[in-house]
Protein backbone atom coordinates (compact mmCIF):
# COMPACT_ATOMS: atom_id res chain seq x y z
CA UNK A 1 0.00 0.00 0.00
CA UNK A 2 2.96 2.29 0.19
CA UNK A 3 2.79 3.29 -3.39
CA UNK A 4 3.58 6.41 -5.27
CA UNK A 5 0.31 6.54 -7.04
CA UNK A 6 0.80 10.06 -8.22
CA UNK A 7 -2.10 12.09 -9.32
CA UNK A 8 -4.90 10.69 -7.20
CA UNK A 9 -5.30 11.17 -3.51
CA UNK A 10 -7.37 8.19 -2.51
CA UNK A 11 -8.45 7.50 0.99
CA UNK A 12 -8.97 4.01 2.15
CA UNK A 13 -11.43 4.15 5.00
CA UNK A 14 -10.18 3.06 8.39
CA UNK A 15 -12.65 0.13 8.29
CA UNK A 16 -11.28 -1.16 5.02
CA UNK A 17 -7.73 -0.88 6.34
CA UNK A 18 -8.68 -2.72 9.54
CA UNK A 19 -10.29 -5.51 7.49
CA UNK A 20 -7.20 -5.73 5.33
CA UNK A 21 -4.92 -5.91 8.39
CA UNK A 22 -6.96 -8.61 10.04
CA UNK A 23 -7.30 -10.68 6.92
CA UNK A 24 -3.72 -10.45 5.72
CA UNK A 25 -1.64 -9.94 8.82
CA UNK A 26 -3.99 -11.24 11.52
CA UNK A 27 -3.22 -8.14 13.47
CA UNK A 28 -4.78 -4.81 14.43
CA UNK A 29 -1.49 -2.93 14.64
CA UNK A 30 -0.98 -0.53 11.77
CA UNK A 31 2.63 0.19 12.70
CA UNK A 32 4.84 -2.37 14.40
CA UNK A 33 8.36 -1.83 15.63
CA UNK A 34 10.69 -4.68 16.47
CA UNK A 35 13.79 -4.09 18.54
CA UNK A 36 13.99 -0.66 16.97
CA UNK A 37 17.02 1.40 17.91
CA UNK A 38 18.11 4.82 16.76
CA UNK A 39 21.41 6.68 16.94
CA UNK A 40 22.41 10.30 16.49
CA UNK A 41 26.09 9.87 15.77
CA UNK A 42 27.34 7.74 18.65
CA UNK A 43 24.53 8.68 20.96
CA UNK A 44 21.78 6.13 21.23
CA UNK A 45 18.35 7.73 21.44
CA UNK A 46 16.19 4.58 21.33
CA UNK A 47 16.97 1.06 22.52
CA UNK A 48 15.24 -2.08 21.28
CA UNK A 49 11.77 -0.62 21.20
CA UNK A 50 9.13 -3.21 20.27
CA UNK A 51 5.53 -2.14 20.13
CA UNK A 52 2.47 -2.18 17.88
CA UNK A 53 0.43 0.96 17.28
CA UNK A 54 -3.25 -0.11 17.20
CA UNK A 55 -5.14 1.10 14.18
CA UNK A 56 -8.01 2.38 16.31
CA UNK A 57 -7.90 5.25 18.73
CA UNK A 58 -5.22 7.65 19.87
CA UNK A 59 -1.85 6.31 21.00
CA UNK A 60 0.16 8.61 23.24
CA UNK A 61 3.93 8.41 23.55
CA UNK A 62 5.08 9.80 26.86
CA UNK A 63 8.18 10.10 28.93
CA UNK A 64 10.57 12.57 30.53
CA UNK A 65 12.51 15.07 28.40
CA UNK A 66 15.19 13.51 26.27
CA UNK A 67 13.79 10.00 26.48
CA UNK A 68 13.46 9.74 22.70
CA UNK A 69 9.71 10.07 22.34
CA UNK A 70 9.94 12.54 19.46
CA UNK A 71 12.61 10.37 17.85
CA UNK A 72 10.27 7.38 17.94
CA UNK A 73 7.42 9.41 16.45
CA UNK A 74 9.63 10.86 13.73
CA UNK A 75 10.94 7.43 12.89
CA UNK A 76 7.43 6.53 11.70
CA UNK A 77 7.56 9.04 8.85
CA UNK A 78 11.32 8.91 8.36
CA UNK A 79 11.88 12.51 9.43
CA UNK A 80 14.84 11.64 11.65
CA UNK A 81 17.09 10.94 8.75
CA UNK A 82 17.04 14.60 7.73
CA UNK A 83 19.75 15.07 10.32
CA UNK A 84 23.25 14.00 9.37
CA UNK A 85 24.92 10.93 10.90
CA UNK A 86 21.85 9.03 12.00
CA UNK A 87 21.48 5.29 12.05
CA UNK A 88 18.57 2.97 12.69
CA UNK A 89 18.53 -0.66 13.66
CA UNK A 90 15.73 -3.20 14.01
CA UNK A 91 12.57 -2.92 11.95
CA UNK A 92 9.45 -0.86 11.64
CA UNK A 93 6.55 -2.26 9.66
CA UNK A 94 3.72 -0.19 8.28
CA UNK A 95 0.87 -2.35 7.04
CA UNK A 96 3.30 -5.23 6.96
CA UNK A 97 5.88 -3.45 4.83
CA UNK A 98 9.39 -2.55 5.87
CA UNK A 99 9.15 1.16 6.53
CA UNK A 100 12.89 1.67 6.78
CA UNK A 101 13.44 0.33 3.27
CA UNK A 102 10.55 2.19 1.66
CA UNK A 103 10.79 5.45 -0.24
CA UNK A 104 10.53 8.13 2.46
CA UNK A 105 8.58 10.40 0.14
CA UNK A 106 5.94 7.69 -0.33
CA UNK A 107 5.88 6.95 3.39
CA UNK A 108 5.14 10.56 4.25
CA UNK A 109 2.24 10.60 1.87
CA UNK A 110 0.53 7.93 4.00
CA UNK A 111 1.80 9.01 7.40
CA UNK A 112 1.20 12.71 7.99
CA UNK A 113 2.64 14.92 10.70
CA UNK A 114 1.74 17.90 12.85
CA UNK A 115 4.67 19.68 14.45
CA UNK A 116 5.37 20.99 17.90
CA UNK A 117 5.49 24.59 16.79
CA UNK A 118 2.90 25.70 14.25
CA UNK A 119 4.73 26.03 10.94
CA UNK A 120 2.43 27.46 8.29
CA UNK A 121 4.24 28.28 5.07
CA UNK A 122 4.41 31.99 4.25
CA UNK A 123 1.59 31.53 1.77
CA UNK A 124 -2.18 31.96 1.77
CA UNK A 125 -4.41 29.68 3.84
CA UNK A 126 -5.65 28.03 0.66
CA UNK A 127 -2.14 27.44 -0.69
CA UNK A 128 -1.03 25.99 2.62
CA UNK A 129 -3.75 23.34 2.57
CA UNK A 130 -3.41 22.74 -1.15
CA UNK A 131 0.35 22.28 -0.83
CA UNK A 132 0.22 18.53 -0.18
CA UNK A 133 -2.31 17.70 -2.89
CA UNK A 134 -0.33 19.80 -5.34
CA UNK A 135 2.84 17.92 -4.42
CA UNK A 136 0.97 14.79 -5.41
CA UNK A 137 0.02 16.20 -8.76
CA UNK A 138 -3.47 17.57 -8.28
CA UNK A 139 -3.84 20.72 -10.37
CA UNK A 140 -7.56 20.88 -10.97
CA UNK A 141 -8.85 23.96 -9.20
CA UNK A 142 -12.26 22.58 -8.19
CA UNK A 143 -10.74 19.38 -6.86
CA UNK A 144 -8.24 21.38 -4.82
CA UNK A 145 -10.97 23.64 -3.45
CA UNK A 146 -12.92 20.56 -2.44
CA UNK A 147 -9.94 19.07 -0.62
CA UNK A 148 -9.19 22.39 1.08
CA UNK A 149 -12.73 22.71 2.40
CA UNK A 150 -12.91 19.10 3.49
CA UNK A 151 -9.58 19.32 5.32
CA UNK A 152 -10.40 22.59 7.03
CA UNK A 153 -13.73 21.18 8.17
CA UNK A 154 -12.09 18.08 9.57
CA UNK A 155 -9.63 20.28 11.46
CA UNK A 156 -12.51 22.43 12.78
CA UNK A 157 -11.11 25.56 11.17
CA UNK A 158 -13.41 26.05 8.19
CA UNK A 159 -15.97 28.36 9.82
CA UNK A 160 -13.27 30.73 11.00
CA UNK A 161 -11.39 31.06 7.74
CA UNK A 162 -13.82 30.26 4.91
CA UNK A 163 -14.23 33.94 4.00
CA UNK A 164 -10.56 34.74 3.79
CA UNK A 165 -8.80 31.74 2.30
CA UNK A 166 -6.56 34.12 0.38
CA UNK A 167 -5.19 35.77 3.48
CA UNK A 168 -1.73 34.84 4.66
CA UNK A 169 -1.70 31.85 6.97
CA UNK A 170 0.67 33.83 9.15
CA UNK A 171 -2.14 36.19 10.09
CA UNK A 172 -3.86 33.39 12.04
CA UNK A 173 -3.54 32.96 15.80
CA UNK A 174 -1.28 30.25 17.23
CA UNK A 175 -4.17 27.85 17.85
CA UNK A 176 -5.57 28.46 14.38
CA UNK A 177 -2.13 27.95 12.86
CA UNK A 178 -1.87 24.61 14.59
CA UNK A 179 -5.30 23.54 13.30
CA UNK A 180 -4.14 24.73 9.88
CA UNK A 181 -1.19 22.36 10.32
CA UNK A 182 -3.64 19.54 11.01
CA UNK A 183 -5.76 20.47 7.99
CA UNK A 184 -2.64 20.64 5.82
CA UNK A 185 -1.65 17.15 6.88
CA UNK A 186 -5.18 15.84 6.32
CA UNK A 187 -5.36 17.21 2.79
CA UNK A 188 -3.28 14.34 1.44
CA UNK A 189 -5.64 11.94 3.20
CA UNK A 190 -3.10 10.08 5.27
CA UNK A 191 -3.77 6.77 7.00
CA UNK A 192 -1.86 7.77 10.13
CA UNK A 193 -1.46 11.21 11.71
CA UNK A 194 1.58 11.84 13.88
CA UNK A 195 1.41 14.76 16.32
CA UNK A 196 4.56 15.97 18.03
CA UNK A 197 3.49 17.82 21.19
CA UNK A 198 1.00 19.84 19.15
CA UNK A 199 -0.28 21.85 22.12
CA UNK A 200 2.95 22.77 23.84
CA UNK A 201 2.89 26.31 22.43
CA UNK A 202 -0.84 26.89 22.94
CA UNK A 203 -3.07 28.34 25.64
CA UNK A 204 -5.62 26.09 27.44
CA UNK A 205 -8.53 27.09 25.23
CA UNK A 206 -6.68 26.42 22.00
CA UNK A 207 -5.38 23.19 23.52
CA UNK A 208 -8.92 22.10 24.27
CA UNK A 209 -9.97 22.64 20.66
CA UNK A 210 -7.05 20.62 19.34
CA UNK A 211 -7.83 17.81 21.77
CA UNK A 212 -11.48 17.70 20.73
CA UNK A 213 -10.47 17.72 17.07
CA UNK A 214 -7.96 14.95 17.70
CA UNK A 215 -10.60 12.76 19.36
CA UNK A 216 -12.90 13.24 16.39
CA UNK A 217 -10.15 12.50 13.89
CA UNK A 218 -9.38 9.24 15.66
CA UNK A 219 -12.69 7.92 14.30
CA UNK A 220 -11.31 8.17 10.79
CA UNK A 221 -7.59 7.53 11.07
CA UNK A 222 -4.88 6.38 13.42
CA UNK A 223 -3.45 9.12 15.64
CA UNK A 224 -0.11 8.90 17.43
CA UNK A 225 0.66 11.82 19.70
CA UNK A 226 3.74 12.72 21.70
CA UNK A 227 2.95 14.60 24.85
CA UNK A 228 4.59 15.29 28.16
CA UNK A 229 1.35 16.44 29.64
CA UNK A 230 -0.05 13.62 31.78
CA UNK A 231 -3.52 15.09 31.96
CA UNK A 232 -3.62 15.49 28.22
CA UNK A 233 -2.58 11.90 27.65
CA UNK A 234 -5.27 10.83 30.13
CA UNK A 235 -7.91 12.90 28.36
CA UNK A 236 -7.29 11.99 24.76
CA UNK A 237 -5.39 8.73 24.44
CA UNK A 238 -6.65 5.16 24.36
CA UNK A 239 -3.21 3.60 24.46
CA UNK A 240 -0.02 4.87 25.95
CA UNK A 241 3.66 4.06 25.53
CA UNK A 242 5.99 5.30 28.26
CA UNK A 243 9.65 5.70 27.41
CA UNK A 244 12.26 6.28 30.06
CA UNK A 245 15.73 7.78 30.02
CA UNK A 246 18.03 6.11 27.52
CA UNK A 247 15.22 5.45 25.08
CA UNK A 248 13.89 2.31 26.70
CA UNK A 249 10.24 1.42 26.34
CA UNK A 250 9.10 0.88 29.91
CA UNK A 251 5.40 0.38 29.48
CA UNK A 252 2.86 -0.01 26.71
CA UNK A 253 -0.82 -0.69 27.05
CA UNK A 254 -4.25 0.83 27.34
CA UNK A 255 -4.13 4.25 28.94
CA UNK A 256 -6.52 3.26 31.69
CA UNK A 257 -4.50 0.24 32.72
CA UNK A 258 -1.11 1.93 32.55
CA UNK A 259 -2.29 4.95 34.50
CA UNK A 260 -4.10 2.88 37.12
CA UNK A 261 -1.49 0.21 37.72
CA UNK A 262 1.85 0.62 36.00
CA UNK A 263 4.19 -2.38 36.08
CA UNK A 264 7.40 -0.60 36.81
CA UNK A 265 8.12 1.59 39.75
CA UNK A 266 9.88 4.16 37.60
CA UNK A 267 6.81 4.56 35.44
CA UNK A 268 4.69 4.88 38.56
CA UNK A 269 7.01 7.63 39.76
CA UNK A 270 6.87 9.35 36.42
CA UNK A 271 3.09 9.17 36.28
CA UNK A 272 2.71 10.51 39.78
CA UNK A 273 4.72 13.53 38.68
CA UNK A 274 7.73 12.79 40.84
CA UNK A 275 10.06 13.41 37.91
CA UNK A 276 9.74 14.39 34.32
Amino acid sequence: MVTQDGATVTARSIDATRDWLERNLHSTSIIETERFGFFYGREQALREVSLGIPIDGVTAIMGPSGCGKSTLLRAFNRMNELYPNTRAEGTIRFLGQDLLKADPVAVRRHIGMVFQRPNPFPKSIFDNIAYGPRVHGIRHRAHLAELVEESLRRAALWDEVKDHLKKSALSLSGGQQQRLGIARALAVRPTVLLMDEPCSALDPKATDRIETTTRELAQELTVVIVTHNLQQAGRISDHVAVLLAGGVLAEFGSTRTVFASPFSEQVADYLSGRFG
Binding site: M79, R108, G112, M113, N119
Partner: peptide, 18 residues
Amino acid sequence: VPMNFREGALALGATKWH
Protein backbone atom coordinates in the same frame (compact mmCIF):
# COMPACT_ATOMS: atom_id res chain seq x y z
CA VAL B 1 14.79 29.82 6.36
CA PRO B 2 13.44 28.01 9.42
CA MET B 3 14.03 24.25 9.40
CA ASN B 4 10.33 24.13 10.29
CA PHE B 5 9.30 25.11 6.76
CA ARG B 6 11.49 22.47 5.17
CA GLU B 7 10.19 19.78 7.50
CA GLY B 8 6.61 20.88 6.97
CA ALA B 9 6.96 20.44 3.22
CA LEU B 10 8.87 17.16 3.44
CA ALA B 11 6.33 15.74 5.89
CA LEU B 12 3.67 16.24 3.21
CA GLY B 13 5.57 13.99 0.86
CA ALA B 14 7.43 16.69 -1.03
CA THR B 15 10.84 15.79 -2.39
CA LYS B 16 13.78 17.90 -1.27
CA TRP B 17 13.83 19.69 -4.60
CA HIS B 18 10.11 20.44 -4.46
